[in-house]
Each structure stands twice: as C-alpha cells, then as structure tokens.
C-alpha cells in the first residue's frame, strides 16, 4: 500500500517539476524577448553613425568653440580698441560655448533642434 502511495505521488512530483521547468523556460524566453526589444529601441540619435565618427566630432566641437570665441575677442580688440577686454570676455565665452557645443553634440541638451525633431 505504501508503495502504491509513493507511486501516486511520484507522477505528481514529476508533473510539478515539469511545470516548474516549463514556467522557467517561458519566463527566460520572455526575458530574452524583452531584452532584445529594449536593445532594438536603443540606437543612439546619431542613427547608424559609428562611435568613432561621434568621437571625431566631439573633439572638434570644443576646440572650435574656444577658437571662435578667441577670434571674436581678438577682432573686437583690434577694431574697437578695447584691448584686452574683448579677448578676456570672449575667450571665457568661447570656453562656455565649447562645453555647450560638446553637450549638445553628445545629446545632453534639449535644444530648439530637438524640440523640432520631437514635434515632427
């Protein structure tokens, strides 16, 4: 009789184990699906631009800001005779611009441009 009872429970255990396995498999499949979906949504705003083209771009943005600021400051000094104030103010402003440019190029700033593309 006791053997009979064990026989009765074993299929039940096996059933339970099978159902657990099944659940585990279905869960992991769901998880993988969700992960893949998240990865598919992730592409950066640059689209198919490679990371290197982004890097090349960022380095230039900062330098250009400083150079442009220094250029404007120098021009103001030369043509308006405000030396050295034009260079001081606009070099600092150029530095700010460089940081601003880099932040924007890296997509950390909400700019009018982003609002525009968001609205489209």
């Amino acid at each position: 009789m006791s053997g009979n009872g064990e026989d009765g429970r074993q299929p039940e255990d096996r059933d339970l184990a099978k159902r657990l396995d099944d659940l585990g498999r279905r869960l992991s499949a769901k998880e993988r699906e969700a992960l893949a979906a998240r990865k598919a949504q992730e592409p950066r705003p640059g689209g198919d631009a490679t990371a290197m083209s982004n890097a090349l771009r960022l380095s230039g943005e900062f330098i250009a800001g400083v150079v442009a600021g220094a250029g404007i400051g120098w021009a103001i000094d030369t043509y308006l005779g405000l030396s050295p104030w034009g260079l001081i103010v606009f070099l600092l402003l150029g530095f700010l611009t460089g940081v601003w440019n880099v932040l924007r190029a890296a997509g950390y700033l909400k700019t009018p441009r982003d609002h525009g593309s968001g609205g489209r």
Binding site: A64, L96, N101
Partner: peptide, 23 residues
Amino acid sequence: LIVAIEVVSFISRPVSLSVRLFA
C-alpha cells in the same frame, strides 16, 4: 548669456567644420 553663447556657437560652426576635416 545663452544668446551670447548661441551666437559664438553659430560662428564656431564653420570653424569646427573646416578645422576638423583639415586637421
């Protein structure tokens, strides 16, 4: 301040565009 930065940023565009390629 923001407008001043944006103006300098606009002027920096041809600079960055040309210097990057040339350099």
